[in-house]
Design a protein around this nucleic acid. Structure first.
Length: 512
RNA sequence: GCGCCAUUAGCUCAGUUGGCAGAGCAGCUGACUCUUAAUCAGCGGGUCCCAGGUUCGAGUCCUGGAUGGCGCACCA
């Protein structure tokens, strides 16, 4: 071991110096016979369980023996006594180590512990003079040595780029980030629990296929070597799930990853998670009930409240939600109904009047109506609102209304001006479906996202699909709403980032 | 794809009019047996994102680039 800091060390940069110190500590630890990367440790307590089990311990009381493990986040040495904070997923617990109690050798070895190290600890629970529940350590060991210093202990890791690129550093230094992902997991469990109780079965359909249908979006393209064929990553699960309904599975759902080759924004990641469910013998009214049921269940069993706060707005998720037709909303906020928009160039004119920026490509009527709705109505839909009766041009897979063939039995659920769910009574008439596909083919020149014609899906419909309700919920946006986040990247563990170019100045992964 | 903004120590951030690169945390040395953003004394640590340019002199001004954030477009 170096007696004094060498010249070389003195010249090293901050990080290299700190890593060198940690490496020396690791080696010294190994020399004392301790494995700096230990093995299994059977815990009988967590930070939170200690609070729960010994919360009523009197000031002079001494609780039972606990075995806890976690990361050292803070340390306050006092010569022959030391306090440390140990953090696990459940929370934080203070450790108290005194030279008289752990023994001199063990206490000296504490010099080899650095912030960020993972420790296993055995000791009794007591209350400090200041009243804080703590563990009086009898034995301790380094279970894994941290060779890199953790981010700043008080502010945590703030640099958003590093947070997303090195999420592990974000997670280990920001407890609230850990809690967001715990909550996401619980919400997904609750959704599955609710649907399973309603008699739905979870299925898995192909992520790759020769045709990307079920939505209007540009797909990712990949290639299968053995078959030497082009494959698309799915943009929706819809068409496969409906094949399941044809096959008699009656009530199916899939919570799956969807891939869309589109731009990236605070609300868009190239891959995202979508819940789609289909119920035979139901319709879009049934889907409204299920949508309300899912949200009610999650609010009740996960959040414990129906009020969520996002950017200072309070959203009330207590069902039933408002129900408004698209035509009604357009008349109210744009001053023009659907029928009028369909006439001549009215939609295009209005879009221009509203100053809607239109891309260079030509726009289908459906697209223009959608844009006008977006520009005039969406901002008013803050509290949960089902928007009903979408025009047929926007909905090539939805059932046509018997009373008005220009409309479909479809709704979208809006919250805070953005779409959270989309559902319709599924089109089960193979003749109508073929016509709609053909109309989409005609749009191909103006709309590159027009729906492809799926012959096998038509074949399935020809075997007979029962009247069916179908529903899609964007899970990431739901999680954003329920966790109060305004960026999709805050609810995705590993959002897509452009790779760092290697070279001088590059701060790629592993170079924090 | 377009516009605006950001990038300074391991981390969180200051940096004036263009004039020697700063603080807190973390690290190192020492003191301290109930602290909790522990405290006290001392020390080290910089490709100021990269490449050019202007200037006696650039973290600071100009041009180009990289990455990111926000907004727009596309979309869910």
């Amino acid at each position: 071991m170096a007696e004094e800091p060498t010249q070389a060390e003195g010249l090293e940069s901050g990080l290299a110096e700190q890593m060198a110190v940690r490496r020396e500590h690791l080696e010294s630890l190994a020399r004392t016979g301790q494995d700096p990367f230990g093995s299994r440790f059977d815990r009988n307590a967590t930070a939170a369980s200690i609070q729960a089990d010994f919360g009523h311990l009197p000031p002079d009381g001494e609780g039972g023996l606990v075995r806890v493990a976690g990361r050292i986040s803070s340390r306050r040495g006092h010569g022959k006594a030391t306090f440390m904070d140990l953090v696990d997923l459940s929370g934080r617990i203070q450790l108290y180590l005194k030279i008289d109690e752990v023994g001199e050798d063990s206490y000296r070895r504490l010099d080899l512990v650095d912030l960020g190290d993972l420790l296993t600890v055995t000791g009794t629970v007591f209350r400090t003079r200041r009243g804080e529940l703590s563990v009086r350590v009898r034995e301790w060991a380094v279970a894994a040595k941290a060779l890199r210093p953790p981010p700043e202990k008080w502010h945590g890791l703030r640099d958003v780029e590093v947070r997303y690129r090195q999420r592990y550093a974000d997670l280990l230094s920001n407890a609230e980030v850990r809690q967001t992902f715990v909550l996401r997991s619980r919400i997904l469990s609750a959704i599955r629990q609710y649907l399973d109780h309603q008699g739905f079965m979870e299925v898995e359909t192909p992520t790759m296929s020769a045709l990307a249908g079920g939505a209007a979006a540009r797909p990712f393209i990949t290639h299968h070597n053995a078959l030497d064929m082009k494959l698309y990553l799915r943009i929706a699960t819809e068409l496969y799930l409906k094949r399941c309904i044809v096959g008699g599975l009656e009530k199916v759902y899939e919570i799956g990853r969807i891939f869309r080759n589109e731009g990236i924004s605070t609300r868009h990641n190239p891959e995202f998670t979508m819940l789609e469910l289909y119920e035979a013998w139901s319709d879009y009214h049934g889907m409204m009930e299920i949508t309300e049921g899912i949200l009610d269940h999650v609010c009740t069993h996960v959040l414990g409240t129906h009020q969520v706060e996002v950017e200072g707005q309070t959203i009330d998720l207590k069902p039933p939600f408002a129900r408004r037709t698209m035509d009604e909303l357009l008349r109210q906020h744009a001053g023009v109904g659907l029928n009028e928009l369909r006439q001549g160039d009215r939609a295009r004119e209005l879009a221009r009047e509203l100053g809607i920026p239109l891309a260079d490509k030509a726009h289908s009527l459906a697209h223009l109506i959608d844009k006008i709705f977006e520009a005039t109505c969406e901002e008013h839909l803050v509290q949960p609102t089902f928007v009903l009766d979408y025009p047929i041009e926007l909905s090539p897979l939805a059932k046509r209304q018997a009373e008005d063939p220009s409309l479909t039995y479809r709704f979208e659920l809006f919250v805070r001006g953005s779409e959270l769910a989309n559902a319709f009574s599924e089109l089960n008439d193979p003749f109508d479906q073929r016509e709609r596909f053909e109309q989409q083919q005609a749009l191909k020149d103006v709309d590159e996202e027009a729906h492809p014609l799926d012959e096998d899906f038509l074949t399935a419909l020809e075997y007979g699909m029962p009247p069916t309700g179908g529903l899609g919920i964007g899970i990431d946006r739901l999680i954003m709403l329920l966790t109060g986040k305004t960026t999709i990247r805050d609810v995705l563990l590993f959002p897509l980032m452009r790779p760092r170019v290697e070279g001088p100045g590059a701060t790629g992964p592993g170079q924090i």
